[in-house]
Design a binder for these strands. Structure first.
Length: 621
RNA sequence: CGGGGAGUGGCGCAGUGGUAGCGCACCUGCUUUGGGGGCAGGCGGUCGGGGGUUCAAAUCCCCCCUCCCCGACCA
């Protein structure tokens, strides 16, 4: 599985060394000037001059560790809900992530562009997405009342751009990317940078003559993504995702494993199967024995006749189970859905939930969706909470194979405040269609190998799609083939949440004292602390620290020098909070013995160097 | 959008009708110096905004704004 360590790969073009934990990995990081999200090289800095104020107390509105620590460490400050300023330390981390992304995108053959953030709504009308995005888009009007939006993504803009430039199969393929701010007016921004309304995203778009060519680039980008997240120090999994309504066949999400993540994903403990909860399926009985559609099933001989029980004011599974003294799994849950305007019922055991995506998939090409509260209001004959599988108004009954077990069920009586016991498949109710319907839970069998599946939470840090021709057709991105025929270009798109990675990294790499930056992302490689003390030796200690600082600068080491007039406790606490990979202490104790001390933030291990050799040793450590 | 909570100095908080406070941070001085030390003295607040009640409003009433949390198809 994927480890959390930093891959043996340097972060910037000017690196000369590739050893893990090498301070020089931080040298010269950054890219050329003028790009959004480019902080330039990592210059050394005196802490007395750094724009930084650390917070001793936790901000009251920060709920998760990464948000709390990024605020306390002075990396970010909130400006509005879901909108943040990036201060120098945070800015450097963001730039480091950008550098890695840029490095891998360039290596994968993608070319960097920069598209406008302010985009005309007309452009979005051409694909109809101005309507589907709806209030999720920030909208504005210019002085002539022309509509604009702040780009939430850029398929339209890039496709229109390519359509205007390229028209021949000889031009293809081409893969373009940008790193730019994106805007989504989220229903509920939360968790700091995790669900923000303004966020930095790398979005790439590839254009191809055919699907085979798309698949080649898709595979290359997939591999590049794995390198990006590995280099960022994230523990992650790539998972199969549900093909959304946006179009496209194959797509994968990259999930950083995190308890506070907003997305569940499923992975197999026995093979490499992994999928998000929408796309995930368990190994159901469909794979072994599939009852014929509408086939009667023999009832167990000894099943008692079904009988009604009074269950007043108990429209929920848990309440009914408790009332009757049975397990939720003994109940048959009947979920109402709409299929092309008719009522359908989905049957699953009471301890299971219907996966709405699985239902939709099972009934395709018919259009199916679960009932909402409004639907129930429109159907007062349907006793929500007391629906049984034999409800006479149901045009279609779909059941998960878990319902095919030969046993009696407790289920709704189709009458408010009443359930029935001993409802038996084949005798008391029918099933029109068997389909995998339940959401996967931990412990379910893997659909590929049968081993145990596990459900975990993650932060979606990347997503790759094979889009197909939807956008090319809508925006006229076509090419002429060798025979002179026109075809729409086949597209892929590939996103990475750059600012979200920063939060995901802190979630994974911190302790109770502060952030523990991975080497590849740290704002500085070395946090140099001077402890002059009082007395005759103070000047000598400061002199030694100043000399070491100068030498490290000369050696090109990214060093943050805590030259403040503060107590040792304050300096050490701040060093722990800020989380640079190495802390180097020049104090009276050490200087008296002619040494400086070095401490690894990640594990607390310490060692010493002779004062005179310190700069050279640290620069090449 | 529904429910809940909160807006008082940079951060964390107290203050329920009568002169706006505490801790941290910040400034000055002294002291201390290997894990957020001590003493003394300071700077800093339209108490989210508007309206109202009152002799008097951070405090009571009305409206608005902002922020946070939970939920927003599982019967």
């Amino acid at each position: 599985m994927l480890g959390s360590g930093c891959e043996c790969r340097t972060a910037g073009a000017s690196n000369t060394s590739g050893k893990v934990g090498n301070i020089s990995d931080l040298q010269g990081r950054g890219s050329g000037p003028g790009r959004p999200g480019d902080a330039g090289s990592l210059r050394p800095m005196r802490m007395s001059a750094l724009f930084l104020r650390t917070l001793r107390d936790d901000p009251a509105d920060a709920e998760i560790d990464s948000h709390r620590l990024l605020l306390r460490a002075g990396c970010i400050r909130r400006v509005a809900s879901g909108i943040y300023s990036w201060l120098p330390l945070g800015r450097r981390v963001l730039a480091a992530v950008e550098g890695i992304v840029r490095d891998e995108m360039d290596a994968a053959g993608a070319q960097e562009v920069l598209l406008p953030i302010a985009q005309p709504l007309d452009l979005w009308a051409r694909t109809g997405r101005d309507a589907t995005y709806g209030p999720l888009m920030f909208r504005l009007a210019d002085r002539k009342e022309a509509g604009f939006c702040l780009s939430p993504t850029a398929e339209e803009a890039i496709t229109a751009l390519v359509a205007g430039e390229y028209s021949s199969y000889r031009d293809l393929p081409v893969n373009l990317y940008q790193i730019n701010w994106k805007y989504r007016d989220e229903l509920r921004p939360r968790f700091g940078l995790l669900r923000a309304r303004e966020f930095l995203m790398k979005d790439a778009y590839s254009f191809h003559a055919d699907t085979d060519d798309l698949r080649r680039t898709y595979a290359e980008m997939y591999a590049a993504y794995q390198r990006v997240f590995t280099r960022c120090g994230l523990t992650f999994r790539s998972v199969e995702a549900q093909a959304g309504e946006i179009g496209g066949d194959v797509n994968h999400e990259f999930m950083a494993v995190a308890a506070i993540g907003e997305d569940d994903f499923v992975w197999c403990t026995g093979c490499d199967y992994a999928a998000n909860v929408e796309a995930a399926r368990r190994h159901g009985r469909l794979h072994q024995e599939v009852p014929a559609v509408d086939a009667p099933v023999d009832a167990p001989v000894d099943a008692p006749e079904r009988d009604r029980v009074h269950t007043p004011d108990l429209p929920g599974i848990a309440g009914v189970a408790a009332h009757l003294g049975i397990e939720p799994s003994e109940l048959l849950k009947c979920i109402a859905f709409d299929v092309d305007g008719e009522l359908g019922l989905a049957l699953v055991p009471g301890d299971r939930e219907v996966n709405p995506y699985a239902l939709t998939q099972a009934l395709a090409p018919r259009s199916a969706r679960l009932y909402t509260d409004d639907d129930f209001v429109a159907r007062p004959d349907l006793p929500k909470g007391y629906i049984g599988p034999d409800f006479t108004g149901a045009a279609l009954v779909v059941a998960d194979p878990l319902v095919g077990e030969e046993r009696p069920w407790v289920t709704g009586a189709n009458e408010v405040d009443h359930h029935v016991r001993h409802a038996v498949l084949g005798r008391d109710f029918r099933v029109d269609l068997w389909a995998d319907l339940v959401s996967v839970v931990s412990g379910d069998p893997c659909p590929r190998c049968g081993a145990r599946l596990s459900v975990d939470r993650g932060i979606e840090v990347g997503h790759v799609f094979q889009l197909g021709t939807k956008y090319a057709e809508a925006l006229g991105a076509a090419y002429t083939d060798a025979d002179g025929h026109d075809h729409p270009m086949v597209m892929g798109c590939y996103g990475i949440g750059v600012s979200r990675i920063v939060t995901a990294v802190v979630e994974e790499h911190h302790d109770d004292r502060g952030i523990v930056w991975p080497d590849a992302l740290a704002p500085f490689a070395v946090h140099l602390v001077v402890l002059p003390g009082k007395g005759d030796t103070a000047a000598a200690v400061v002199g030694a620290a100043e000399a070491l600082y100068a030498d490290l600068r000369a050696a090109g080491v990214a060093v943050l020098y805590d030259d403040r007039d503060a107590s040792p406790g304050v300096k050490f606490a701040d060093a722990d909070l800020l989380g640079m990979p190495w802390r180097v202490t020049v104090g009276a104790k050490g200087v008296a013995r002619g040494v400086v001390e070095r401490r690894r933030r990640a594990d607390g291990t310490e060692d010493e160097f002779p004062l005179l050799e310190a700069a050279a040793r640290l620069a090449s450590a």
